[in-house]
Structure formats: C-alpha cells, structure tokens
Design a protein around this nucleic acid. Structure first.
Lengths: 252, 252
DNA sequence: AGGCGCTTGTGAAGGCGTGCACAAATCGCG
DNA sequence: CGCGATTTGTGCACGCCTTCACAAGCGCCT
C-alpha cells in the first residue's frame, strides 16, 4: 500500500471541480462506506424541502455522530458554511461525484434463482445510480426468460456482452458452488468490481474489488447478541422488565 | 481493562459447557463478525472429510489472515492443539455455541414484495440455524398467500404470533416508508434483534440490536472504487493496480 | 458597524484492531 | 527417551478510526 498522500488543500473547494481533479484524496475506507448513507439522507431532506442542513441534523438523519459526519465531509473539502450548515443540493452533487454516481453505471447480474429475481426487480438500484443491463444464468431452462424487460442470456455470452455494454460491475447471485467460476468469467470479461451474494470466498486478481453480502451471516451476528442478552438477563436478579427507557438508535 | 481470561480450560471443551457459563468474555465486535465466516469454512472442510485444520488452512478458506484467525479463536478459549491444528468438529460446536446457533432461532419476515419473497425462499437461512416461522404484510391482497408452506398474515397479528412462536429476530423487507412503523411493532412484540433491508435509519430502544443491509449502498461503494481506479489509470504514472487482492466484506 | 450566537472544521487524545514475531506446547521419529 | 519439526497462543507496536473540545468563520440583529 504505497498510497501517496497528495496535498489536498481546501483551496480547490469552490465549485469548479470539473474533471480536472486528478485522483482522489485517499479517503478513509470507513468514510467511504458512510457516504452513501449521507447521500440517502440528503435526498430525503431535499425532497422534504430543506435547502440547508446542519451537521447535527444530517448526522441524525444518517444515524451517526455529528463529529464523525463533519470529519467525514471535511475529507471531501469545505462544502459547509459556518453558522449555517451544508447546502443540501451542493453536497448531494459533491458526494455523487466522489462516488462516481454522476455517470449511471452498467451492472450485470449472474444467477437468476430466488434472490436473482428479486435483485433484478429491485428498483433501489435504478433509483440510486445503477442500471442492470444484462442478466445471465447457466441453466438453459432459464435462458430466454424475460425479467423486468430484460432477456436472460446464457453465461457464455457474458464476455461479449460485457464488452459491448461496458460493464464494470457484476453481481453474483448464484449458489456457492458456481460463484468462483462466475467470478473468473467476470474478471476475464473485464469486470473490476464484484458484489457477491454467494456464501463463499472469491479469489480474484489484484485490482478487482469484491464486496460480499451474506444474509445468513447477518442473522448469525444477531443471534450472537441474542445469546449474549439471554445469558445476561438470566444472571442478575432484576429481569430488566423494559429497557425502553432511553431511545438510542443502535446503528450497524 | 481487567480482561481476565475466564477459566474456560480446554478440559471441559467437549460437551460440558451447558448453559451454566455465566456471560461471555466480551468478544471484540470485529471478531464476532468473522465467526460466521469461520463457521461456514469449517463446515465446508468437514464435509470434505477433514478432521483437523491448521490456522493457515482455515484462514485461507475464510479469506483472512492466519494471525487474525488465531487471535479471534483465542478469544473463545484454547480449542487448538499446538503442532496439529484445530479439531474441525470441536471448533464447529464451539463457534455454534458462542453464536447461539445450538438452538434453532425463530425468525419472522415482514414485507413480501420482491425481496421478501426471495428471503422467504432462501434456504441459506434454514441450513444455518434459523427458521422462518411467520410472514407478515400490510397489504390485504398479499395476506393469505402461501409461500414456502407459510401463509402470509396481516401485520396486526404480529404481536400475538411473535409471543406464541417466541420470535426474537425480525427481518424487515418493506419499503423505507413503512420500516419504522414495522420496527415499532416488532419491538412492542418483544423482538430484540432486527435485520433491516429497508434503506432508512431505524430508531429503536436501547437493548434492541439492528443490523442493516442496503444493497444499493454496497454498489455505491464499489462505484467509488471504480471511479478511483478509472482516475488512476488515466494518470500517466502507469502504476497498474498493485493493490493486494482485498476481499472486503460488509460489516462493522 | 460591531458584537453575538451559531456552526463548521480540525488538532489532539484515546481506543480498537491488525499483523509481526516469537515463546510455549505438542507430536512423530530415530 | 530425547530431539526436531510444526503449529498454536500472545505480547507488542503500529496505524486507523472515533470522539472531544475549541478556535475560526459566518450571518444576523441591534
């Protein structure tokens, strides 16, 4: 990781960030993971008619600490006004730019089982900067099926289509046994980002990013906390009748 | 502070850790989030016929560093044998116990749109310690529908059913606008763990755990990396991505 | 015009997690 | 029985992230 810190003077903070900004100030990974949440909160606020929002208000809407939010945003530059807050529209533009959402990204989806069908129909993708442009499956009985206006193609076509449609992001929703082979095909086709829903570890060349979502793992983590809570309430005499005292949003 | 390793000597490791173990050594959150991954890898290894596995081997199967794996496991106690490795079956039992998976947990699912249908049919839940015992929706046209052998009930029945079936975990797969109301109903019904697929922040009383899975956010994070990679390759520096193969997983 | 209240941006401190490197422990073999 | 090979368990140092607290900056009101 020889990531060179390159001087991010707040000087360029004004509106003119048209294409000239070379690379990115290396944002902390933790910050990047929160930017989408801020973005969603900002869109909500914007639709509610807010022109500006304070760090406190935005932090509440995004479910984080306000100091953390300010520090996160400060990494992008100075887009707030002291004494006033942040301009909602401006901040939306800035975050969308940083996340690369100003260009609608083409996504392909591999595996149209139960989950794949749901993902193909999930309108949260389209409404937040992504467009599913192709569906693939290895099962001949599924090929040809029309889902949400797209025809399911055989996975052998993936390489050709990926190039034609300039697909950079692939979503894997196959069973675990097929996932690695699919990943290999995706990588060969030039895909450099993969979202993996299959419960397995993918091996990919460096330069390819993989994010994994495992629904069962999330439940197992909750199960642990259930287990812990149960063993705690069993011990002290006072079975905490109602913990509903203080409202605290327990974020992830 | 006084992180006293509580005398969980390897002697009783086999069967004799019935419910009497007081509480849990407070495992680091990061460790907890990885335990399910270890568990999955162990099951794979076990089915492949392995009796024991080294930290190196298990780490590779789980996609993590071996030192990290050893430290994680050391938090549970000493369940390995130096010079040999870890007993697969024993470690499976131990992790399942810690995660509270020795008892099959009852889960209810609220919201049977596109995603809800997929979740209801996802066999990864049943195969990994969970059982969906009830489905709810607010839409009368969906109530009565049979999915995977379960009848969709109206959400007003949630309170009664949750108590009857002893449901501790609820999954929210509704639109964002309905999620908070559903969460309130779940909490009132005694549910203390919530897995939220709706793109919004939930406010719940302390003592209730919420984990959030937002599919679009995952894509947006990938989009950022795409954006960054694109702006790097545009530079004449010609450093072709040397980043080590990194497998990022959702969490925190 | 000047002061006052509000909010951002940030230096500093502390905590948490990671990875290295090695001592301790166990097994197999001569 | 002792020795070497192997692997676990862990002390330690380092870096990242979070949180606090406050100076700097901005707008509004008088």
């Amino acid at each position: 990781m020889s990531q060179q810190r390159h001087g991010n003077t707040p000087g360029n903070a004004d509106g003119g960030r048209a294409g000239s900004v070379t690379a990115f100030p290396d944002l902390p990974e933790a910050t990047i993971a929160r930017l989408p949440e801020y973005l969603r909160a900002l869109h909500n606020l914007g639709e509610a008619g807010a022109d500006t929002v304070s760090s406190e208000g935005l932090a509440a809407a995004a479910g984080v600490n306000s100091a953390k939010l300010r520090k996160d945003l400060s990494h992008l530059g100075s887009y707030g006004t002291r004494g006033v807050g942040y301009d909602v529209a401006l901040l939306i533009d800035q975050i969308e730019y940083v996340l690369g959402l100003d260009q609608r990204r083409a996504v392909c989806l591999v595996g149209l089982g139960n989950l794949g069908h749901a993902l193909a129909g999930y309108d949260g993708f389209a409404s937040r900067g992504f467009k599913i442009v192709a569906l693939f499956d290895a099962d001949p009985s599924k090929v040809g099926e029309e889902i949400q206006g797209l025809i399911v193609r055989h996975i052998e076509e993936l390489g050709r289509v990926a190039v034609e449609e300039n697909i950079a992001i692939g979503v894997i929703a196959t069973p675990a046994g097929a996932a690695q082979a699919v990943a290999d095909v995706l990588v060969d086709a030039g895909v450099t980002s993969i979202l993996n829903f299959a419960p397995c570890v993918l091996s990919v060349p460096s330069g390819v990013d993989v994010r994994k979502v495992d629904l069962a793992i999330e439940l197992q983590i909750l199960s642990f906390h259930e287990h812990r809570k149960a063993s705690l309430t069993a011990l002290p005499g006072g079975r905490s009748a109602t913990a509903a005292g203080n409202q605290e949003a327990v974020g992830s």
